[in-house]
Amino acid sequence: MDPKLFKAAMTGDLHFLESLNEDDNSNFLCQVTPKKNTVLHVAAEFHQSEFVQAVTHRCPLLFQSGNSNGDTPLHVAAKVGCCEIVGYFISHAQTLQVDVESGHVDESHKKKELLRIVNVDKDTALHCATRNGHYNRDFRDIAELILNASPSSSSHVGPNGITALHAAVYSESQRVLLGHFFFKGSKEAFLQPKVSTEKEFMEILLEKKPNIIRERDNLGWTALHYAADNDGESALHIAAYYGEINSIKEMIKSCPDICDLTNHKGQTALHLAILGGHENVVKYILKTPGLKCLINEPDKDGNTPLHMSIIFKDYRIMHMLARDERVDIKATNKET
């Protein structure tokens, strides 16, 4: 790509565009970088919205071009959180009589799925926005724009069978997907109180759409498997810590293997139930055949659930565990 053109795209230099002759549009503006980025990719990367609009006006179909990674300028705008550019591309597609979902362009008889175009990683623009969200309002707005323009985008299966919901849960962009799945994408969804904790998120997830937690990716994982906080605690850990026995039962019913998940300390849901002091959860785990693997499972310090009950002086739980013949009362931790 011509250095002057690259710099103009990076800085949003509209005067440079105005200095070009009309004959320069088709060839000069369609130059690419070694990674096949067009001038629109570069401008989107640096949030140069006016420059993007000016170039697109001159080269109307350039916004559909993919780079060597398969990313369109829309992917780039979604990744960097530039809501204005994402909104412009969607509006521009509609102006060109492009069906936003099918990408059909009447004039050229081409079919491109604008909002469902995937890169080499099988990510759509919605995947990019939700994965990079982290409670950033710009990314939530981008997801809202895409979902409103193409409601079916949320069901697109990305890499390893991961949908946008999986990506959102994994990256903590829950609020947008909650709005789409549970409130039909209405604006009211985005006026709901912020879902600030994983516990709140999983409660709403289980209440509003229990079947969604049964949708699995290629690894057999559901959104529940991906829902972990900064300490690596899964939805099951959180429910166990707070004593949410009904939620635990529903999770185990839907995802029996979720019990294998441990947090960053190597602790299981049984460890967390003891930390939370919930005898009812401990009793349920002991009575559930499919959870017997948790009974003597040590954490990274070698502490079994029995050790944990002793360390935190929860004598009721300690006696409950000690009376169970399956509990290894001779187990040692790394301190002994």
Rank of each mutant, 00 (worst) to 15 (best):
M1D: 01
M1F: 11
M1W: 02
K4V: 09
K4Q: 10
D13L: 05
D13G: 07
L14M: 11
H15V: 06
F16W: 14
D23S: 14
D24T: 09
N25P: 01
N27R: 13
F28S: 02
L29T: 05
V32G: 00
V32Q: 11
T33I: 10
K36M: 15
V39A: 07
V39M: 04
H41F: 04
E45L: 13
S49T: 13
Q53M: 15
A54N: 12
G66P: 00
S68Y: 10
D71Y: 14
D71E: 14
T72A: 07
T72S: 14
P73E: 02
L74W: 08
V76G: 03
V76H: 01
V76M: 09
V76T: 13
A77K: 03
G81Y: 03
E84M: 14
G87C: 12
S91Y: 11
T95E: 15
L96R: 09
L96G: 00
V98P: 00
H104I: 14
V105K: 00
D106E: 15
D106H: 13
E107I: 12
S108A: 06
K110D: 05
K111P: 00
K112E: 11
V120K: 14
T130D: 08
T130E: 07
R131F: 15
Y135W: 12
Y135P: 00
N136R: 14
D141P: 00
L147H: 03
L147D: 03
L147Y: 05
A149N: 01
S150Y: 04
P151M: 11
S155E: 14
V157W: 09
P159I: 04
G161M: 07
A167N: 08
A168I: 02
E172M: 10
E172F: 11
S173V: 01
L178Q: 08
F182V: 00
K184V: 02
G185E: 08
K187A: 07
E188I: 10
A189S: 12
T197F: 13
T197A: 11
K199Y: 12
F201S: 07
I204K: 08
L206A: 09
K209L: 11
K209V: 01
D217T: 12
L219E: 15
W221V: 00
L224E: 01
L224R: 01
Y226V: 06
A227F: 03
A228L: 10
A228Q: 13
D229F: 07
S234K: 01
L236F: 06
A240P: 03
Y241M: 10
C255T: 14
K265D: 13
Q267G: 06
T268P: 04
L270D: 02
L275I: 15
E279D: 08
N280Q: 11
V282N: 02
Y284R: 02
I285R: 01
K287T: 10
K287I: 04
G290K: 11
C293W: 01
L294A: 02
N303K: 10
M308Y: 02
F312Y: 15
F312I: 12
D314C: 03
M318F: 15
H319D: 13
R323I: 01
D324G: 04
D324K: 08
I329H: 06
